[in-house]
Computed example of a mutant assay.
Amino acid sequence: MKGWIDEPVVDPIVPEADRQKIIRMPVLVDGFPEPSSRTRLFFAVDGAVAGVIGAFLVGFAVQSGSQVAAILSIFSFVIAALFAGHARPGLAARMRRLYGDCCIFPADLDDNALGLIRRARKAIEIVSTSRVNRLGLLDDIANDVVLPERLWEIARLLRTQVALRAEQEEAMSEMVTPELVAVITPQREALDRSMISVTKQVVELEDYASRVQEADAALRAHELLKSNDKYRDLLARTDDAQGLQSLTEHVDMLESTLAENLRDAINAGQTLAVPGGAAAV
């Protein structure tokens, strides 16, 4: 599954223009591997050698008038430029240096963490594109401020959990001693509790999205009430007093249902704020 749902998660404090720069870079989205420091050193040395050869060929071409040397010097400089480009830190590394700890890339997470991020994003997408939201019937602060903050907090915790899990797996790949087990066991329990907590946050987002969908459905039904006059006229013409009474009762019930669904959706959105601004792992 690719597309917006696999974009990097960016801290809401990052300006929108910079956020767009981050998410529009396919190298970051796809999580291509970064070149190692040894690989970059190899390209740097080869680039310098190619540059020296190019400079020598330029001098030789000027003295001898050789066109072949001139052409070879151009190729040498092109190769030197290419090698110099590969010697630079990768795009993801440069972006991390530029934005610090303000973005989390798919490559930073494992499959389980990515699954939770996708679920959270899907729920937020449902809320954002709902009719009740577009009509301004929900809590604007919850949707515009709290939802991005909740997504960022979930991603931040998941990245920490993935790093700690990798640390534990590396430790357990070595000789397992009673002392190591004594250290790892409570750490794993803490990690499991943290994972349960993050999963609960995702479920809360999904519950909010479900309530918004219910409000959307009630709103669509409410809009169909505009056609009730035609049905009242039809029932009146057939002298169906009982049908008219039933239709009126359903109108009153639907009005109440819409109000209740909207109230439930707003209340669900207002409970999503991250306590204290951040959660602990």
Rank of each mutant, 00 (worst) to 15 (best):
A55E: 11
L225E: 15
T129W: 06
Q161P: 04
D46F: 07
V78M: 13
Q201I: 01
P26W: 00
F105V: 07
L244M: 15
R131C: 02
N143Q: 12
S210Q: 13
H86N: 08
F75A: 12
T271V: 13
A113Y: 14
A50D: 11
N267I: 00
L116K: 05
G90I: 02
L135R: 04
A217T: 07
S130W: 07
D11T: 00
L164N: 03
R165H: 11
A81R: 10
Q245V: 09
T129I: 06
T238N: 08
S210T: 05
D229I: 09
V281A: 10
Q20L: 15
A55T: 10
I53R: 05
F43P: 00
Q245I: 14
P275N: 13
D233T: 09
D192E: 09
F77R: 05
A81N: 02
Q187K: 12
R263W: 00
D140K: 09
D216T: 03
R188S: 12
A44R: 06
R131H: 05
T199A: 12
E189Y: 03
N112C: 00
L28E: 03
L247E: 05
A70F: 11
R88E: 10
Q63Y: 14
V10D: 11
A265S: 07
D216N: 10
I126M: 01
F83G: 06
T199C: 00
R193K: 06
A190V: 02
S256D: 14
P8S: 02
I5F: 10
L164E: 13
S36M: 06
Y99A: 03
K122N: 14
S64I: 02
E170V: 13
K2G: 05
D6Q: 05
L138G: 04
A48K: 10
G243F: 13
L262A: 01
D192S: 07
V9P: 06
H250R: 15
I154V: 14
G115F: 05
R97Q: 15
Q201K: 13
L41H: 05
I184R: 14
A171H: 03
N267E: 04
A123N: 03
R188T: 08
E16G: 02
V251N: 10
D139A: 14
E125V: 12
T160L: 07
E170Y: 06
D46G: 02
A259W: 03
V45G: 03
P89M: 11
N267P: 06
E189F: 05
P33M: 09
H250W: 13
E7C: 04
Q168W: 02
Y231S: 04
F43V: 00
K21A: 06
T271D: 14
F83V: 01
S36Y: 05
C102P: 00
I23R: 09
P275Q: 06
V176Q: 15
V212I: 10
A241K: 14
A93N: 12
Y99N: 12
E260C: 08
S66G: 14
E223I: 08
E260M: 10
T185S: 08
S227K: 03
E125W: 08
